[in-house]
């Protein structure tokens, strides 16, 4: 195995292919502009100035995570399937690297993309709202009484929310990545991943009609990992713990990656 520095070359290549595209910068632009627009709207509409920076930030973050997930799914669905549809896969795989290394470099670049957008979203929503509403050290209504974080600082709450959302983001992105390498079609991968994302709550509702124990192991409800921070549980009528949800998400994460890897390394490239 070659040193890590030369593996980093592969990740650099994938990053180049992401950030040299206009679409990436449009996505980043949207991620910056949307919270700014909301902040301006809040500032104009809030009459008696009872809005505080943390509540505005969390509201905007909820919307942003929906957007970021779409963006990251688009990129992760494109990263493998795009090489096939362009035909560049034939040039990419005839290099002194195993297919596993190529796939890993692509996955890392997508995780970095998701991380970048999450960090940008945190920074922008925090800054914009502090500028608009001033800094509140102890917001009254931010953290509910049932929350395990009741009484903690707003920083702990915001960071925990971002961490939970980032974890589910990575699981959804891994799902898109798996479909991308299995079907070699980005359209199908994007479509199915977004279906997973948006039908999650609906399917959770359906699942709550049955009282079978396996309902707890279905992926969809656990994508609502951030419900814990407000004192709720993601699976209706089946109380679960935060650690249990993390375990379910980890199991799916591993399954998705094993499928991606198996398909990508074993299948013939005849595109």
């Amino acid at each position: 195995m070659r040193p890590l520095a030369s593996f980093w070359n592969l990740v650099q290549n994938e990053n180049m292919k992401i950030y040299r595209r206009i679409s990436t910068w449009i996505m980043l632009g949207i991620t910056v502009v949307i919270p700014l627009l909301f902040t301006v709207a809040f500032a104009l509409l809030a009459e008696d100035n009872n809005a505080n920076n943390w509540e505005a930030m969390m509201l905007e973050s909820q919307i942003l995570f929906l957007l970021i997930t779409i963006f990251a799914v688009v990129k992760s669905s494109e990263t493998v399937a795009g090489e096939f549809s362009r035909g560049t896969i034939k040039l990419l795989l005839i290099r002194p690297w195993s297919r596993s290394s190529i796939l890993l470099s692509k996955f890392i670049s997508i995780v970095l993309f998701a991380l970048l957008f999450t960090v940008v979203s945190f920074v922008v929503t925090w800054l914009a709202n502090v500028i608009a509403f001033g800094y509140t050290a102890n917001p009254a209504n931010l953290i509910s009484e049932q929350s395990p974080l009741a009484g903690s600082s707003p920083w702990a709450y915001a960071l925990r929310y971002y961490l939970d959302e980032f974890i589910t983001l990575i699981v959804v992105v891994t799902f898109g990545f798996m479909l991308s390498s299995a079907f070699r079609s980005s359209g199908l991968a994007i479509g199915l991943s977004l279906f997973l994302l948006f039908s999650g709550s609906m399917i959770s509702g359906l699942l709550s009609l049955t009282d079978k124990a396996w309902v707890k192991y279905v992926l969809f409800p656990h994508l609502g990992l951030s419900t814990y921070v407000n004192g709720g549980t993601p699976v209706p009528d089946h109380p679960t713990t935060y650690a249990f949800s993390l375990g379910v998400l980890a199991a799916y994460f591993i399954i998705f990656n094993v499928i991606s890897w198996t398909v990508f390394t074993k299948r013939d490239v005849s595109a």
Partner: peptide
């Protein structure tokens, strides 16, 4: 292999950097 498909949104030079990085 078949047609020389490259990354069309990159320049020729960036394409060469891309493939160059993959060999020592």
């Amino acid at each position: 292999v078949e047609n020389p498909e490259m990354y069309k949104y990159l320049t020729g030079y960036q394409n060469l950097i891309h493939f160059g990085r993959m060999n020592p």
